[in-house]
Design a protein around this nucleic acid. Structure first.
Lengths: 241, 241
DNA sequence: CGAGTACTTGAGGCTGTTCAAGGACTGTGG
DNA sequence: CCACAGTCCTTGAACAGCCTCAAGTACTCG
């Protein structure tokens, strides 16, 4: 990994990384505060497949994927490595992270990671109280995401699982119609608790239903986002009485 | 809920609550520090079935079950409430908690809950640095537990799920042979993604295998903890090469 | 004793897995 | 350019595991 001190200079280095909106962690901050942050965070660049080394002792307190994507593998009871989760641009690494449970982070593509240890973050928060609020909101989102996965694994059918995964990827990529799956069928199955054959069959079913188009196995076009969401098995967020 | 200022006075009030070891959150603290903590935390008592009210705005930053047990229910896509998790004595409430995702905490029995908001906890940590370390360790344990549930729901068979739940309850109760299930078969099924019939059949299978005895449906005697653990499908924690 | 709740047990069917074969795409070397 | 190997994906058939539905049992409470 290449530690790069020149802050945010990477934008120029990654023509593929189109202008991203400011990460949610930094929403609502003044230009002056952003400048303060540039010096408090550490920006690292990873190439495709490169592992993200995390010192388990001084794990980054907050890690933010600026662009690219990370995969998180865990080792199961048989000692096999399997895909556990994905982290896309703009998203936070799980704080206290997966490392402790035998997890392993690696880059799926050219990826820029912004990290900050706890003491550094504490110092920043002292100057920029809003930062803590942003972090709390993101942590809530992570907990909600964990809960969604738990529901998926515990109670959803195969078709709902595959529809959910695609819908989530779709939403996390800003709702763009064209979706490039960063993992193969076997890994989709590992995340969703299905076999690769079942994943394949369910994707085929979605294609036949006209909800998606699949020009190439890893290229998904979402043709009907509403229908896709309807097939996830998640009710349209109802207000409790 | 009855806010009680008199610190730790509850011990006398709950003859049933046999002398608990000091909670992990307070491990290694001096008597003086414990005294400091008594004034920083708020101790509340709940009766069986009583909901734990959490102001979503100022949610307790850390909540610790001193004695008793809590259940956490969530509302699924169909709007049905179902049991999601249990919190036993000595354990932490999930920080940032379940409230945000429509969860609802309530007491399973006579329960004493120790809470502290973020600002109060920050103040305590300033005096007692060790407290933060303890909290971090507990949070790690929570993340590990989440991962175990995810593995259970995603990849385990019915028999492994039931064995795992019993083994976890057993371990969380200090390995005592006699285990009193605080929930019925249907709720065990809700947690593990099984039907109540399947839970019943698997418990029966464990009984017939001589691993447990079931004098009453909610009374489980663990006769062979090693065999029970072997049936969870979790490998005997191997050291990675 | 009757009602209610929780648990058990059985039969049958559906869903997803397993196993096996074949197809599509990519890169390599002649 | 083609042949070839390798990887990933698709598709089919048979099976197994868990669910659904339906009785029937055990315990508690009035």
């Amino acid at each position: 990994m290449n530690a790069m001190i020149q802050p945010w200079a990477t934008k120029a280095l990654y023509p593929g990384a189109q202008k991203q909106p400011r990460p949610a962690l930094f929403q609502g901050l003044t230009r002056r505060e952003m400048n303060r942050i540039r010096h408090g965070f550490c920006e690292d660049q990873y190439t495709r497949g490169e592992p993200v080394l995390c010192d388990p002792i001084e794990m980054p307190f907050v890690g933010l994927v600026l662009c690219g994507a990370l995969r998180e593998d865990v080792r199961d009871a048989q000692g096999e490595r399997r895909l556990f989760a994905l982290t896309f641009a703009g998203e936070l690494l799980s704080p206290l992270g997966p490392q402790r449970i035998g997890g392993q982070l690696s880059a799926l593509e050219e990826t820029v990671l912004l990290t900050c240890d706890r003491t550094g973050f504490d110092a920043l928060v002292a100057d920029i109280p809003h930062l803590r609020l942003n972090l709390l909101h993101l942590l809530q989102g992570q907990i909600a995401a964990t809960h969604r996965w738990q529901t998926l694994l515990g109670r959803k059918s195969a078709s709902e699982r595959v529809a959910s995964m695609l819908a989530w990827f779709h939403a996390r990529h800003g709702g763009k119609d064209k979706l490039l799956l960063p993992v193969n069928r076997a890994e989709l199955g590992q995340m969703s608790g299905l076999t690769l054959e079942t994943v394949s069959r369910q994707i085929h079913a979605l294609k036949k239903a006209g909800v998606i188009a699949v020009p190439q196995p890893t290229h998904i076009h979402v043709l009907d986002a509403d229908a896709l969401h309807a097939l996830t098995g998640d009710a349209p967020a109802r207000r409790a009485a």
